[in-house]
């Protein structure tokens, strides 16, 4: 027992996480099978797993995941490239910053999701309209974080490099870029969430495939278990991407102070 206690204490957080997840699933299953017992309303984890296996074996799931992933990754990559580019431009040129700032602020705070129906009218039900919406969702967090990262670099570091005779380029590459990196990475991570919301909601409006389409189609037909499969997939996808980017962030900028 003491050996087990030792292992438990050293890995307490992980043990507790596993226990918590199992407990949660068991409670959910019990509530479903003992209290509600209406598959139209609540479905337990067991039936969600069954629905998952069914969709997987029919090959439907792969098609939906593939569609959403394609929209997501294309829109996201274009958004990241444009966001970093414009962010650097705004950080380097004061004029560009003054001209672009009001527009960027407005767009960043606007619920761009509302434009989704218009994009679908303009670009059709296919992948183009979704990429556009994902792009708009992804671009602004990256842009803002790149800009903030580059303009809030510690002035003392810049002065130190200058005092030792560093050139402008050296300041840019040795101080500004590494200093901005952690915030840029944060922007990338934040964009994932917005881009996913963009992809899903644009599929709600009209699509032929995709996880968002799966969720609406299933819940309109009261196949709640299939809709929950979609939600669980999104949860796993979002979580994995989030944690992966967090890990890369630590690898790239280990000097950055994570605790505030």
């Amino acid at each position: 027992m003491s050996a087990f206690g030792k292992i438990y204490r050293s890995q307490e957080k992980k043990f507790d996480a596993v226990v918590s997840v199992i407990l949660g699933l068991v409670i959910w299953e019990l509530v479903d099978s003992l209290m509600i017992r209406n598959p139209l309303v609540l479905v337990g984890p067991w039936r969600v797993a069954e629905a998952f296996m069914k969709l997987l074996s029919q090959g439907v799931l792969a098609r939906h995941i593939y569609a959403t992933f394609g929209e997501f990754i294309l829109g996201y990559l274009i958004g990241v490239a444009v966001g970093i580019g414009v962010g650097i431009l705004m950080a380097l040129s004061r004029r560009a910053k003054e001209i672009l700032n009001p527009w960027v602020t407005i767009w960043y705070n606007a619920p761009i999701i509302l434009l989704a129906p218009l994009f679908i009218t303009a670009l059709g039900l296919g992948i183009a309209s979704k990429i556009a919406i994902v792009f708009i969702g992804a671009v602004f967090p990256v842009l803002f974080n790149t800009y903030t990262g580059m303009t809030t670099v510690d002035g003392r570091l810049v002065e130190a490099v200058r005092a030792f005779g560093g050139t402008r380029w050296q300041i840019f590459f040795k101080v500004t870029v590494p200093g901005a990196l952690p915030l840029v990475m944060t922007g990338l991570r934040l964009s994932v969430g917005r881009a996913l919301v963009g992809a899903i909601v644009s599929e709600f409006f009209g699509a032929r495939a995709g996880i968002g389409y799966l969720i609406t189609a299933a819940s309109e037909a009261f196949r709640t278990s299939e809709a929950l499969v979609g939600v669980v997939l999104l949860a796993i996808g979002g979580y994995v991407t989030f944690e992966a980017l967090k890990y890369i962030e630590r690898k790239i900028a280990p000097w950055y102070e994570y605790k505030v």
Binding site: K13, D16, S20, G212, I215, S219, E220, A235, G238, F242
Partner: peptide, 20 residues
């Protein structure tokens, strides 16, 4: 105990739950 649930739901686009 709460951390796995919170961080998992936080990373999910919660609007996906709207139809359900």
């Amino acid at each position: 105990y709460l951390d796995p649930w919170v961080s998992c739901i936080y990373a999910t686009p919660t609007v996906a739950l709207a139809p359900i």
